[in-house]
Design a protein around this nucleic acid. Sequence first.
DNA 1: ATGCGATGCTACGCGGGACGTAGTAGAGGA
DNA 2: TCCTCTACTACGTCCCGCGTAGCATCGCAT
Lengths: 104, 104
Amino acid sequence: MGGLADLGRFSEPALHILISLAPGPRHGYAMQDDIGELTGSRPGPGTLYGAIRRLEEHGYIEALPEQDRRKPYRLTDAGRAALNAELQRMRALAATGLRRLAVA
Amino acid sequence: MGGLADLGRFSEPALHILISLAPGPRHGYAMQDDIGELTGSRPGPGTLYGAIRRLEEHGYIEALPEQDRRKPYRLTDAGRAALNAELQRMRALAATGLRRLAVA
DNA sequence: ATGCGATGCTACGCGGGACGTAGTAGAGGA
DNA sequence: TCCTCTACTACGTCCCGCGTAGCATCGCAT
């Protein structure tokens, strides 16, 4: 309850997945746990695997050979670049916003 | 084209509106311009006024008396607090992500 | 005076992402 | 044998993002 998240699409699961894959390959369930630790809320399967599919279609992540009924994914170079760009954009926007709040 | 924005809701119009109102009251059209400068893309009226309505319903912004067919809005205390919290969260997440990218 | 662009907002509809729930299935422990 | 944890698939609803269209007013130039 409370917070901007009530207003809709502030959760950005795709971004969280990319951040989760930044240190190395991970399968879906492990991403859920990692994102839960990162953000405080664990995405459900509908959210997660939907976002994974779209990220794969865009070429930002790719599946590794399945083993032991786990499907690991890793960042592609394009995904790494896109993540980097997005994070820089976020950092700059946050800085601008906080500056504006401080002045006012 | 390209970039994470293709994947859906990375634009977060509500956040942009709050940032736009941080320095002081502004009416809708002025927000469009300001957000356009901030983010590089000017939101259409459907996006903007929809988000404004929801923000007002949540008590994050409030309308000032209309003058000259302009409806100015300003941040409420709750809106200011919510914006601050969201920006800190964003900054922390961006920092974490960038750290992970740098190490890997 | 009148045409025209910029301003400022309302109304409306479509597409698709976010999210929850249910279901499937193997592995491991009590 | 039953339950829990792991891991994913399938499915449906909700509602936000976004574009388009429409309308009214103002300023400015012709």
